[in-house]
Every structure is written in structure tokens, then in C-alpha cells.
Simulated assay, not measured.
Amino acid sequence: MEALTFKNHSVVPFDNGNGKIWFTAEHLADLLEYKDVKQVNKIFHRHKDEFTENMTTKVTVSDKSMTYGGLSKEVRLFSPRGTHLIGMVSRTPVAKDLRIWLLDLSEKESGIEVGCLEVGNLTQLAGQKLHDVIAAFGKKSFKHRGQKGSGLLAQRKRDIKTIKDVTKLVLQLTQIAIPDLGDFPDADEDPEAA
């Protein structure tokens, strides 16, 4: 697996053979800037009942050392969602930033791409396309961030504000006022006669 970078920490996720991202307790201790892994284990055991099997698991890894033969040990793994839960109850200064990073990582891993509305990119689009982009963003935001229990309702509120602001701007750009040009003669009338 490719290394992931959070702040000045580079972590290669554990390959559990299922193609998903898994972090070890050692990874979490490093990312949360704990001195050792004991703090992560304490947090896990205090909140054990909040974790599902999709959030954490144990695997046995072997160390093929020439001196000691084949040793094996159990390692606890955490999915990005499980890692986020550890980050929620952690009180280190970087925990908040880690939680944000993990939500972005979870969104990428799940294949959900809500996208973003950037004014600079919108100026290159035609009128109807502008409205279509806003509508598509609104639907994705509602689907992935606006459902009960999604845990992303704060982001949904920011999305709604962005949608309102961008819609107002797009309406200003796409609605033009046609000046009053006076009365036009009927098609039957001769314009020269008037």
C-alpha cells in the first residue's frame, strides 16, 4: 500500500489482504503524538463497546527472524472509521486535525466524491451548465452528508451556505436585464409610414 501523510507523519497502512486501509495501534500512537501505544490501547478498552467489527479487528502477524525462528503476535487494527473514533476521545492537540483528515480519507476510500463548488472554475461554464453543477453538488451533498446518522451534518450546513452563495452569484451572472426599447410596430404596418 501507498504511504499516507498526515502533517509530518508518514504511515504505510497495514495490508490486511482486503484492499482496505487499516491502521495499527502503533500508527495511531504516532499520528496522535502519544509517547507509546499504551494510550491508544487504554482508549480502545475504555470504549470497546462502541466499536463494530468493521472498525477494528485483530490479526496474527509473524516475524521471521533467523535468531528466534518464527515468532507471532496479535496486532489490533483500526479502519479509518475506528481510527476516527479513537481520535474523537483522544485529547492530544492534533486529534481535531486527525479527525478531519480521517473523514476525508474515509470519503475517498468509500468512493464517494461530493466535489466542491469553486467560483474560479464556474466562470468557464455556460449558464445552464452552471445551474446543473450546483444542482449535482446539492444532490450529492444531501445524499452523503445530509442523511440522519451520517456524522457529517456540520459539513452539510456549510455545503448549504455555499450552495446559496454560489446560486446567488450565478443568478447575477446569467440573468441579464433587457432594456426597454419602446414600442415596436405591428408586422402589418409599414415602418416608413409611421
Rank of each mutant, 00 (worst) to 15 (best):
M1W: 11
V11D: 04
F14V: 11
A29G: 14
D30P: 07
D30C: 15
L31R: 10
K35F: 13
K35D: 10
K38F: 14
K38R: 14
Q39L: 10
Q39Y: 12
Q39D: 05
V40H: 13
F44W: 14
F44P: 00
R46D: 08
E50H: 11
T52V: 06
E53C: 07
N54H: 04
V61N: 03
V61G: 01
M66C: 05
T67V: 09
Y68A: 12
G70Y: 11
V75D: 03
R76T: 11
R81W: 07
T83K: 08
H84M: 15
G87A: 07
V89M: 06
S90H: 02
T92C: 15
V94F: 12
W101N: 08
L105T: 02
E107L: 10
K108A: 15
E113S: 12
V114M: 13
C116Y: 13
E118M: 07
L122Q: 03
Q128F: 14
D132E: 10
A136H: 07
F137M: 01
K140R: 14
G146W: 13
K148D: 04
G149R: 04
S150F: 11
S150A: 08
G151S: 00
A154I: 14
Q155G: 05
Q155Y: 15
R156F: 15
R158E: 11
I160F: 12
D165N: 01
V166Q: 00
T167M: 11
L169E: 02
Q172F: 15
Q172M: 13
L173S: 03
L173A: 09
D183P: 00
F184D: 02
D190H: 07
D190G: 03
P191I: 13
E192Q: 08
E192W: 12
A194I: 14
